[in-house]
Amino acid sequence: MNEVLSALFAPGFFASDPVRAALVVGAVVALVTGAVGVFTVIRGQAFAGHALGEVGSAGGSAAFLGGANPLWGFMGIAIVAAGLIELLGLHRPRARDVATGLVLGAGLGLAALFLYLDATSSSTTGVAVTILFGSLFAVSQQMLPSIVALSAVSLLVMAVCYRMLLLSSLSSDLAAARGVPVRAIGIAYLVIMAVAVSLAAETIGAILATALVVGPPATALRLTKRPGGALLVAGLIGVVAVWLGIVLAYDSYYWPPAGHGWPVSFFVVALVFVFYLVAGALTGIAQALRKRRWETAPRLAASGCAEHPGDAV
């Protein structure tokens, strides 16, 4: 047993402070993005979610320029972008798509500007990589309380709005008829999504944040039919992906090329993708089994239908 453990967890894994912080932050963020992401997938807003992450990198780089923690920059600009998408997007899917694209284009333009200024003002060129691709091990200890608090607030707001959000995601007309303020819920949801994406951007990087926001929820929605269950399953899948990613990244210091760790973000993304494919394969197998069970059924029904009154017509 000990051998298995020591093969899995490289020496010093649990003793390392950055690792412990990464495990906590990663789990908290994965739970939030899982819960928020289920609605992102149901509402078909994966593009908006991704755009918020990338646009956030403009804020991250601007905050870096001003000497603040990138998280605040991420979040500030992501919330502004969320408002703009909602404002421009109207309710037609295609107009929404274009509005998201335009906000994304403009945001990336700003990111280009700020990253350029970052690179010229400080002599370190690594800032672009840190902001865009992130590193769980580099999350500063003093940000931990803020991250946990923001996550708790997001989950709380989600819990309060849960039923209204679900109803308006299924049918905005139905929700409006029941007196749900659909527009306000839509904006509130985009703001929560902006916060969740910013948290993910802080941990696995702005352009990979989408992996946590879309991947585990899409996987969960393949595995479970109940929306409430999907929130939980998505959070758990996210936690597993992040923790396993941290373990593998820590282990990878001993993999080739020697003395060089593989990025955590890569492992998290790859695991999320594999989980999605496996869930798809599982549901495919389940469907095939159900179909085989039904293959005998038509014959039974066909033989039974002779007595059915419908045939007397």
Partner: peptide
């Protein structure tokens, strides 16, 4: 879903990009 497929394909390719970048010397 189409947008989910797009998002996941994108992040997988970017994740690989992050991996390749971390190996190269003058990456930034």
């Amino acid at each position: 879903r189409h947008d989910v497929a797009t998002a996941l394909a994108l992040v997988l390719m970017l994740g690989l990009g992050a991996l390749f970048l971390s190996f190269s010397v003058e990456y930034a």
